[in-house]
């Protein structure tokens, strides 16, 4: 397990092989929340446009989303709203 940390976030990173194939296991160490990413998801992140990453960094998109807009992860807009240029 490796940890990628900055003053803003701390995430542990490891390759998990409990399934039939390998996947990346990410854990937000400040909350214990875990997300797995398979190879195709990772490849898609590698190829995602910069605007996608910028939109993802908007706190209102997921974790700190107003309750009346529904659950966070499933409701990520597709494609995400265009962030400022």
């Amino acid at each position: 397990m490796d940890v990628v940390a900055s003053e803003f976030a701390t995430v542990s990173v490891s390759v998990d092989d409990h399934g039939n194939g390998t996947r990346l296991r990410l854990e937000d160490l400040r909350t214990g929340t875990v997300r797995f990413l398979d190879a195709l998801e990772l490849e898609s992140i590698v190829w995602a446009p910069e605007s996608w990453m910028r939109a993802l960094l908007d706190p209102s998109q997921h974790r700190w989303r107003d309750a009346d807009r529904g659950p966070a992860q499933e409701s990520m807009p597709e494609p995400p709203e265009e962030p400022p240029a």
């Binding site: 910028r54 960094l57 908007d58 706190p59 209102s60 998109q61 700190w64 107003d66 709203e81 400022p84």
Partner: peptide, 21 residues
Amino acid sequence: WTFANTGDLLGFPFNQGYGGS
């Protein structure tokens, strides 16, 4: 509030308080 390292504002929590994104 979250900023790009160029200074651009990327977003803020609970944006309905500002009328949305």
